[in-house]
Amino acid sequence: MGTLIKQELYKLTHKKGTWIAIGIMVVLQIIPALVQKADSEFFQLSSLISNDYLGGGLYLFIMIASAASIIAMEFQYGTIKQLLYRQYYRSQVFISKLIVIFMQLVVLKVISTIMTFTLTALLFPSFDWDQKIEGSQTLLQLYFLGMGGNVLVTVFLLSVVILIATLLKTNAAAITSGFIGYFVSMAASSVLLLLINKWHWLRFNPFSMLMTSSQIISPDMSQATLMSTPLMITLTFVYTILFTFIAYFSFRKRSV
């Protein structure tokens, strides 16, 4: 397994796109920070910082592209046969890819977080992380709470992307589905909430889980989603595991 993970990391780190994406993410954090420094009215500073100076949000899209390509590229480049004929089980090959995707997600999140704290310390040294935002929670607590929810929803979305990449074997289809799925769900969340209000059973559909991160920050949303926050977190995990298992069974059975 260690060898497989090393090989996956080798491929990932030798792709120029991996480094370019990190570079773009960091630059897109720096630019809004400088704009805010020049004009303090441009953004609301606490909101800008909570959102990792906007650029940090790019990690979701980098991860969608990366998760799609780590599976689909093997089919597209015809490398899947040499990956699977060796002494390893298919489950090991699949899990090694999941581990590397998770490692990349953690690294991107750590980089964007370090950038957020560094930019804040350098450009806005008087910013008060301990200010109370909602009730008794400080901005720092909310920042990490939001990060946790965000990572959870991202992992859920990536399980869908990996499933599509495994089934369709093409990068483009999986990336497009990931992006469109994300944007449509975000745009249609108010419609979804209306539908849930009408047919209560709809609250358990997988798209509702894209709102888990919002509900973690704003627990009042439970009145609209008709689910408690712990239930939503649990369901998000369950769907993530379910989609990942379907992807694995498809990968395991595939003749190459």
């Binding site: 491929k11 030798h14 792709k15 120029k16 590229m73 093997e74 480049y77 015809g78 490398t79 899947i80 046969k81 040499q82 990956l83 004929y85 060796r86």
Partner: peptide
């Protein structure tokens, strides 16, 4: 075991 089946799998990058 070493093998080449049908066509070589190549990572262009």
């Amino acid at each position: 075991v070493g093998a080449l089946i049908e066509y070589p799998g190549i990572y262009p990058f």
